[in-house]
């Protein structure tokens, strides 16, 4: 009963977002597959390594395939309480593979608080980032995410969970006017093995809404392995 409700709700949301985005100008559809490995043990330290790629598949009423970048990322985290951890990370985006564009390095500092309330896992994330390229842009973002198991009280192997997240992004720099954006994502997490999750869903971004708004719809696909 609960499972079919969530499946239907997800389908409705997806269709709603697809058609509302479709009707807008300045709309881009993207794919962003990610593979990440998270290493955690009983020490307060944990590590995350990832590789991702982003491509445009649809732009302003035209189906179009345009590779954007390949990105490598690393985060080192330290648990600072029973439910919270701080992380520092670096992301390197290779834009030059596809365009004559400068590569980008991002430095990231993050605080996260995550907890489980009965069946629901929640995670707050506050992230500061410095985008270093031909100009330097500073980003502040806050994201709230939660996961609901679609069967039982937790997501075991071969089971699905529904993850929803909402994020606000504020971007500013010396050479740019501050801009704001929001991101909403909804995806299913299928636990292939006890330590391996495959995410599949979408993320809707409404960016720079104070000046020249544009929308992006991402197809979320991620393979996350915990060691």
């Amino acid at each position: 009963m609960t499972t079919s409700f969530f499946k239907n709700a997800l389908l409705c949301l997806f269709l709603l977002l697809f058609f509302t985005s479709h009707a807008q100008k300045n709309f881009t559809g993207l794919i962003n597959p990610i593979v990440s490995v998270n290493i955690q043990n009983e020490t307060p330290w944990s590590y995350s390594f990832g590789v991702s790629n982003r491509d445009i598949v649809y732009h302003n009423e035209n189906s179009d395939f345009e590779p954007l970048f390949l990105e490598f990322s690393h985060y080192t985290s330290r648990q600072i309480g029973f439910n919270s951890k701080v992380s520092a990370g670096v992301r390197y985006r290779i834009n030059r593979l596809f365009e004559d564009e400068q590569n980008e390095t991002r430095l990231v500092e993050q605080y996260a608080y995550a907890k489980k309330y009965e069946r629901i896992k929640i995670a707050h994330r506050l992230r500061l980032a410095q985008r270093l390229r031909e100009k330097t842009t500073f980003r502040t973002r806050y994201r709230f995410a939660f996961e609901i198991p679609l069967k039982g009280n937790r997501v075991d192997a071969k089971e699905l969970g529904l993850v929803t997240s909402l994020e606000g992004v504020w971007e500013f720099g010396k050479e740019e006017i501050p801009n704001f954006g929001v991101r909403y994502s909804n995806y299913l997490g299928y636990r292939i093995l006890a330590n391996t999750i495959f995410n599949f869903g979408f993320e809707y971004r409404y960016r720079n809404f104070t000046q020249n708004p544009y929308t992006q719809l991402f197809l979320v696909s991620a393979l996350k392995i915990s060691l």
């Binding site: 009983e42 985290s77 915990s226």
Partner: peptide
Amino acid sequence: DKNSYDYLIF
């Protein structure tokens, strides 16, 4: 087993 949250955070 400790609950893992990293897949929700990163």
